[in-house]
Nucleic acid binder design. Structure first.
Length: 386
DNA sequence: TCTGGGGTCCTAGGACCC
DNA sequence: TCTGGGGTCCTAGGACCC
């Protein structure tokens, strides 16, 4: 019965961006701190080394990370900075330094990989780890779960040694449960969630805690009187299918039982590469034509650079535009031949732009290249056909 | 002055082919 | 001439995640 039992860990860095900044500014430890907003304009440099507060910020942007002290004041990631400033005017604010976060990210992943090599990347601050090979000798027995606790503990120590940062780990028979488990005792938590624990530990949680049930689905479940994962597990699958469609409904019901057989994927080819930017102030298609055109060209150059650096070419060129009322439209065009040339991308995206209404002011412009293939493979097939 | 930037996956309709 | 399926590609939008 237990022959197929898996041991999956989810490793989640605690308040990652903010914690990296605290390595640089240890004197800020214990104070509410949020990361977000744009890089400070040069003239502010005159203010010296004083860290600005949310009160002093004006402009667009959202919080990307809040320390636990800041969360206690009611602010959280994704919240607009202006709103956050009203809730916590004295919280400190630092702009994001992605180069440094990426450096720390590499360090933490290398530290884990040295102990357990089967790692699935889930972005800059979290990974899944298949502990199967590491635990294998006693798989299925209770001592095996005791062994996973030891392994998870050594992963936490290795990450702290490599980076000075703490992480929370959940270990479970699958990715769904491991992800939920890692969140149960943050920060620096270590939570084992076994199949037998599902009724007591999973079912009381809100349905929203299932990764994949977001704001919309969560609200619709609430409207059906389904608040907890347990209620979702006990619901009639036909009711869920009726409201969410065959596929989504069945998935929700399975997830609520704690069932998930997705494998840990150590590598995936990217599907698309994109760049987008939100303007400081909304731009007008005609009045700000020159400025828009410069930004547009720059986005194409950056996407082309990303393609080049990563060795891909793409056949579908896409444009994204967000109006001042936050409505977003996209257009795309598939070319005969894959490209990574900035001018070709600019030309195709320019065609897309002609198919979009330009009667409102614009707050965001984005360029995407999809239908990717490896650059060398494509060039090889090209030379064969020529 | 509400609402960043980089992604994935799903759906659904139309074109087109067999 | 009418009816009908299946499969694939393309496009647009939306939900969701980190």
């Amino acid at each position: 019965m237990h022959a197929d039992a898996r041991f999956i860990a989810h490793v989640d860095m605690d308040a990652f961006y903010a914690s990296v900044e605290l390595l640089r500014y240890p004197e800020l430890r214990g104070r509410p701190l949020v990361i977000g907003g744009r890089r400070r304009p040069a003239r502010d440099a005159a203010a010296g080394t004083t860290i600005p507060t949310l009160r002093q910020y004006s402009g667009r942007g959202v919080i990307t990370t809040a320390t636990y002290e800041a969360r206690a004041l009611g602010v959280h990631s994704g919240m607009g900075l202006m709103k956050a400033a009203r809730l916590a005017p004295d919280a400190l604010l630092l702009p994001a330094d992605f180069d440094e976060y990426r450096r720390c990210s590499r360090l933490f992943k290398e530290a884990v990989r040295a102990l357990a090599p089967n790692i699935e990347d889930r972005g800059i601050d979290e990974i899944f780890v298949d502990l199967g090979d590491v635990v294998a000798p006693l798989a299925g027995d209770d001592p095996a779960w005791a062994r996973t606790r030891e392994i998870a503990g050594s992963i936490q120590r290795a990450v702290r040694e490599a980076t000075g940062l703490s992480c929370s780990i959940g270990v479970a028979p699958n990715k769904l449960l491991a992800k939920i488990a890692s969140d149960l005792q943050k920060p620096a938590g270590l939570t084992i969630l076994r199949e037998a624990d599902i009724p007591v530990r999973l079912w009381p949680l809100p349905a929203r805690r299932i990764t994949g049930i977001g704001p919309k689905a969560g609200a619709r479940l609430e409207a059906l009187g389904l608040h907890t994962i347990g209620q979702l597990a006990q619901a009639d699958p036909l009711l869920l299918i009726e409201h969410f469609g065959e596929r989504h409904g069945v998935w929700m019901h399975e997830a609520a039982q704690g069932r998930d057989d997705r494998p840990v994927l150590t590598f995936r080819e990217p599907k698309s590469i994109s760049r987008e930017t939100t303007f400081e102030t909304d731009l007008h298609a005609v009045r700000d034509r020159d400025q828009l055109s410069r930004i547009f060209t720059d986005l194409c150059l950056r996407v082309a650079g990303d393609l080049e650096r990563n060795g891909y070419v793409g056949r579908t060129i896409g444009l994204k535009l967000r109006y001042d009322n936050f409505k977003t439209v996209t257009r795309d065009q598939t070319l005969d031949q894959a490209t990574r040339d900035a001018r070709a991308i600019r030309r195709a995206a320019g065609e897309c732009l002609k198919r979009v209404p330009l009667d409102r002011r614009i707050r965001l412009l984005g360029v995407r290249v999809g239908a990717l293939s490896k650059a060398d493979a494509s060039l090889a097939s090209h030379s064969r056909t020529v």
